[in-house]
Amino acid sequence: MKDFVLRRVVALLLPFIQMFGIYVIMHGHTSPGGAFAGGMVVGLGVIGFSTVFGIEQGKTKMPEHVTTITESYGTLWYILMGLVGIFKGLPFLANKLAVDVGVPGELTSGGLIGLIGVGVGIRVASTMVTLFFTMMEEEA
């Protein structure tokens, strides 16, 4: 799209959209939102950028080999965090990484939940971007 206002507004808003998405991911266990919603916001920033600036320029932001790696390792991160409980002799995904899980309401509280949320957020964001690129490429 050639519209000057649209290009300028999207370019200015992209870092703030991504920052809000990362905030929602990081505070998933203390405030409304979560890893899924936050990852979707992060993905939507890139999707909006590549809608306005074209798909080639959007792919320089998130190339295909990067999304492949983040998708796979986001899931692997979830499994690894789940296996922490098994290594401690507890059920899968048992929340016993730290001895003290902290004061409720703070960012460091919740133990494993925040760490799992980071992996889920990365996975959701890269999946949404991959879905969008795959669908847009069929336009031809």
Binding site: A37, M40, T51
Partner: peptide, 16 residues
């Protein structure tokens, strides 16, 4: 919680 998910998934993703 649902409002944020609805805003992200509905307005953003589905419409896009």
């Amino acid at each position: 919680d649902l409002a944020i998910t609805e805003a992200a998934a509905g307005i953003g993703m589905t419409v896009m």
